[in-house]
Amino acid sequence: MRSRARLDRISVGQPGCSLRSQPHRDVRTALPNRETGGLMRALCIAPDTAISELDLPEPGAPSAIREHIGSSGAVDLGVYHRQALLHMHGDGHAIGLAQNIAAWALASAWRGIVLYPMHGPVVVTGRAEDGGVAALDDDLAQQAHAVAQTVRETLAEWRLRPPASNEAALSELLAYAARDVVPSQ
């Protein structure tokens, strides 16, 4: 089946990750709060390719994720890597949120196929053995940062030298993203 992915222009003025995101604290050394049960590392990838480090409260992670992606309702959950979950606005496309090329490139590289477009901010968390939300590990966080940086650089280059076609753009971007998600040795 032929993919229908299409790279649309990014609108920098559209909503990104919640401005309430906090600087990342190393979850291995963060002291757990007895009332909340602790914090877990996550990332929020904005449609403009910016990444925010998040500390999500363990028992309140679902509501914190909804807040960061700007959804009061449905949150779509994607498993594109066996150790990660991507949380997306359930109505992002329908309400006109900007396409999230960095999150799309990351998910496509992790799956090894061209996926459908993603819209709006995307929160990346780890995935527990039972399929639930867990802290994101350092290797996957590094891959997300690398892919987002690659997408930023590639989009900047395309402003000077546009790709020959949408198919060429998809192929080029996914080749770069695939390189960025190769596990470090």
Rank of each mutant, 00 (worst) to 15 (best):
L173C: 06
Y80R: 08
L97M: 10
L85Y: 02
V133N: 05
R82I: 00
A102Q: 01
L155E: 15
W104V: 03
P47Y: 03
G13S: 14
L77T: 14
G60A: 14
E172Q: 15
M40R: 11
A102R: 01
I65V: 13
R9H: 12
S18G: 11
P62G: 02
H24S: 09
L140Q: 12
A168M: 09
A164K: 09
D76M: 09
L160T: 11
D8N: 12
E157F: 09
V79I: 15
T49Y: 07
A178C: 10
H81F: 10
M118V: 13
H87D: 04
S184Q: 13
Y80M: 10
V147S: 05
A30K: 05
Q149N: 13
A103P: 00
D55K: 08
V79Q: 08
M1W: 06
P121A: 15
P163G: 07
A74P: 11
D180Q: 15
I51P: 01
V27W: 08
Q185I: 12
P62N: 03
S11F: 14
P32R: 04
S72C: 05
H89K: 03
P57K: 06
G112S: 06
A148E: 01
S63A: 12
L54K: 06
P162E: 02
R127H: 08
L77C: 12
H24W: 04
L115C: 07
Q149M: 05
S71T: 11
D180N: 14
H145I: 03
R9L: 14
E157I: 10
Q143P: 10
L7V: 13
L77K: 11
D137T: 05
I69Q: 03
A177D: 12
G120D: 04
D76L: 15
A105S: 08
H119T: 11
L19H: 05
I95N: 01
P162H: 02
W158P: 14
A146H: 06
V27T: 07
Q143C: 15
D48L: 00
V27E: 06
L7F: 15
R6D: 05
R34D: 13
P59H: 08
G73I: 06
D8R: 12
R41P: 04
G96I: 00
R6M: 10
A102N: 04
D76G: 09
R4T: 07
A46V: 04
D137C: 11
W110L: 07
L106F: 05
R34Y: 07
L174A: 01
R66M: 08
A103Q: 04
D91C: 03
S52H: 14
A30E: 09
I45D: 06
A107G: 15
